[in-house]
Amino acid sequence: MGKWVIETDNLTFGYNKRTTVFDKINLRVETAAIYGFMGPNGAGKTTLIRLLLGLLPHHTGGIMLFGKPLKGHRLEILSKTGCLVEQPSLYENLTGRDNLSITCMIRGLQKDSIDRVLHMTGLRDAANKRVDAYSQGMKQRLGLAIALLPQPELLILDEPVNGLDPLGIIEIRELLIHLNKEYGTTIFLSSHLLSELEKLVTHTGILRKGELIFQGSAAELEAIQQQQSTVMINTDNNQGCLQLLKQDYPAVSLVADRLHVPYEDKETIGDLCQRMVLAGFRLYEVKTGDHDLENIFMKLTSN
């Protein structure tokens, strides 16, 4: 297998000839990466996931998984892939164990895989309950258990922590990290919970209006985050400090009774503080703002 587990080549798709959901997407997901896929509602995340799984026909451009084109190798690719697309697909008239049995039989797996995934997802006690009596979180866990059944090399998860309580979210996060670290499972997931993605992903892709506006490693995203962030300073005389710094740092501004300095690097921050202190100003507060994934996401996806 090559470097990329998922690779698309100028992938373009529209539900009809007049509309384009996305245009010329070149997605690259590295082997053993945890790739977080973000985008506002309607950006085309689920559509892209459906295309990767061969659920939507009629696209232009190429889709390669495990180095093989999806067209012509669909069954071979799906045998190595576990997925959870949107709401979990479960037979509500059956028990959790029956649901797992169906997937197990179709995939030709041993029955002991069922107990393994029930244990992993914390559903052992509810395995023999009918799914229509499950809570939303339990259904989500069962959907994840079904995806994990074949011990997949690639996990494609669309909103995997939807409906889970905080403890459940932490458990699933730890489970995904464990699968990635222990078995080298490549995980491609989309989520609206950006704080969760931040704790989990090694790579990120951001989709906006059908365009992949960012794709790269966590370090690359961090660099952008820092470039985009602002340092806020509060002193005993903000106006005086503004006059002092304006000559060498023309980007400094006074906003809502705080000095705002665009972040460059930590040395610059140190230099700014030193100048103010040496000039006799008293520093009350120095903090960076807009430094999390949520804000960078908002900046990148806003018009």
Binding site: L55, L75, E76, L78, S89, Y91, I106
Partner: peptide, 12 residues
């Protein structure tokens, strides 16, 4: 049960 999509993502 919205399971067509599940069936079509199985290796069958």
């Amino acid at each position: 049960n919205n399971t067509w999509k599940h069936i079509f993502t199985l290796p069958i």
